[in-house]
Design a protein around this nucleic acid. Structure first.
Length: 539
DNA sequence: CGCATTTGACCCGCGC
DNA sequence: GCGCGGGTCAAATGCG
């Protein structure tokens, strides 16, 4: 498996979900023996460098917005750094031996940025525009004495930067040694202060009843706790914080393997039988960096044990390998969608639901938002056949006619496209969310404007944002073509792979120069593209 | 021997 | 106040 880490991944267009094939399923007590005994389909490697094509779009957006906004230090960056729980960092983690398939990422990133200057420029311009707009909105809201908490939170998160140094201020319980002092006072948040004096937003620690959670890090440590605001003052703010803190993103995907790969390294730290499900729930924490607060739960669906539900919460405090960025982008976008419309109230969540449908009418079965769950949760259901996956009635039609692929491949395709489509739509949605929120808050203060009116406004704003962004993308025929080619290739590749009883889907889409040379190929060499994660020996 | 996983115990919040 | 369930810890265990 170590060989995998050092292997140079082929230039590929891969996806955020990899169905892990573990070699020691027999040791896996997490799943029923019948599941463990099943013939394991070869890995579906949806991860990889998305140097080109659709995924590129998402990556560029993430990178640019992240850097631009962060660098500028402008409030505009706040929104884009929403603490969705998963950073959108694309910086490659250096040399973690088990880092998943990121060996050539840097090069590829560079190459990509060089090869697609026009798209980049367009997107950068778009980001710039968004930034300015956000700045304007911030000023407006401040003048009104209303500061969308969302933006504040984002800003704070942004301030912490991609390094997650904040979390390094203290050791995680394990590293720190000794059992957590659960009686520890929760009032001392000094360690949570940022270098620049900004209190790490989610310092939730302070809010957490569990003193232990102060220990480190991030907000997300409160991941399992229901402790919400105990401060009466700034109640609204705290409620919103709590909402953000607890936001979760669940991904449902069919997999007979122990868990899906999201490009990160995880260590199992617990397993419990959850009520109502004969399948145990496994708890993992990210081990890519000490003190990374990101956790995830993996559990099989009781009704259909081929379905794996992976729930993420937390914010990575370290750079992510490209492979992880894909999933992070997806989940992050989902969380952003959830949170962007999110007031802690049920209305807010319902709004998000509405927004989800508005943004992604095609994904009504792919993305759902639960307001009833203990924590606001976005569920990305990749088990349903997204056929066709499209965004109707949008300025730029984005139609991906799936050829009704087999279930697993449908999942793969959905997973593959999610970061681009879902993420893009959500990204755009997030652009107006600040405005939407401020409007909403003002409206609330003024006395509850009718929901339909707000929603209409949201829809219009969304449509504008989406139109602008999609138009920008569309403006570059090369990119559009590459995107279409990539998608076609994905679908074809998935199909082909299925026929070959191989789930490994590798699509290479190169757009290496500015003269429109587009090459799309389906790299489907059996047994060669398999990517395994040495840190995933199975759970 | 080091590291990851397993698993029972513990803590906490919530509902009754 | 008590029981239940979820989440986490950490010693024990297993594996490479």
């Amino acid at each position: 498996m170590d060989a995998e880490a050092t292997r140079s991944p082929p230039p590929a267009f891969q996806f955020p979900v990899k169905l892990i094939r573990t070699t020691d399923h027999d040791h896996d007590s997490s799943f029923p023996s019948d599941i463990r005994r099943r013939t394991v389909i070869d890995e579906m490697d949806f991860f990889a460098d998305r140097k080109h094509g659709a995924d590129h779009m998402m990556t560029i957006i993430s990178n640019n917005t992240d850097h631009d906004l962060k660098d500028s230090g402008s409030p505009a960056g706040l929104e884009l750094s929403v603490n969705t729980g998963l950073n959108l960092l694309t910086t490659n983690s250096s040399s973690e031996k088990s880092t998943v398939d990121d060996g050539v990422s840097s090069k590829m990133e560079d190459k990509r940025s060089k090869s697609e200057p026009s798209q980049l420029a367009v997107l950068q311009a778009e980001v710039e525009r968004m930034k300015v707009e956000n700045l304007r909105m911030m000023a407006e809201t401040k003048n009104n004495g209303i500061v969308p908490r969302q933006l504040m939170d984002l800003g704070l998160v942004a301030a912490t930067g991609g390094g997650g140094d904040t979390e390094d201020l203290s050791l995680s319980p394990s590293e720190g040694g000794g059992r957590r002092d659960r009686s520890r006072s929760s009032g001392n948040n000094a360690e949570n202060n940022n270098e620049d004096g900004t209190v790490f937003e989610q310092d939730k620690k302070g809010l957490s009843g569990r003193g232990t959670d102060q220990r480190e890090e991030s907000p997300d440590q409160v991941w399992g706790s229901n402790k919400v605001a105990r401060f009466n003052s700034e109640k609204t703010v705290d409620q919103t914080e709590a909402t953000i803190r607890k936001a979760r993103v669940s991904v449902r995907a069919r997999s007979e393997d122990a868990m899906i790969s999201d490009g990160c390294q995880w260590r199992k730290y617990g397993q419990k039988m959850a009520k109502g499900n004969p399948c145990p729930r496994a708890y993992y924490r990210c081990t890519m960096a000490a003190g990374c607060p990101v956790r995830k739960q993996v559990q099989r669906c009781a009704e259909d044990r081929t379905i794996l539900t992976t729930t993420y919460e937390g914010n990575h405090n370290h750079p992510l390998p490209p492979a992880a960025v894909a999933m992070a982008s997806t989940t992050s976008s989902a969380a952003r969608m959830l949170l962007s419309g999110s007031m802690p109230s049920a209305d807010g969540l319902m709004n998000s639901n509405f927004l989800a449908r508005s943004i992604l009418p095609c994904s009504s079965s792919l993305a759902t938002i639960s307001a009833s769950a203990p924590f606001p949760t976005v569920t990305l259901d990749l088990t349903q056949n997204p056929n066709p996956l499209q965004i109707p009635n949008q300025p730029t039609q984005f139609q991906v006619p799936f050829p009704n692929p087999p279930q697993n491949l449908a999942d793969a395709s959905a997973a593959a496209l999610l970061p681009q489509i879902f993420g893009q739509a959500l990204y755009n949605q997030s652009q107006f969310s600040g405005l939407q929120m401020s409007q909403e808050q003002q409206t609330d203060r003024l006395g509850h404007q009718s929901q339909p009116a707000l929603q209409q406004g949201q829809r219009n704003s969304l449509a504008d944002s989406l139109a602008t962004a999609t138009a920008a993308i569309k403006a570059d025929p090369n990119f559009t073509a590459a995107l279409a080619a990539a998608i076609t290739s994905i679908i074809g590749g998935a199909h082909q792979n299925n026929i070959n009883s191989t789930n490994n889907v590798q699509t290479t889409t190169s757009n290496n120069n500015s003269n429109g040379n587009i090459t799309t190929s389906n790299n489907n060499s059996n047994g060669h593209n398999k990517i395994t994660n040495s840190r995933f020996p199975g759970n």
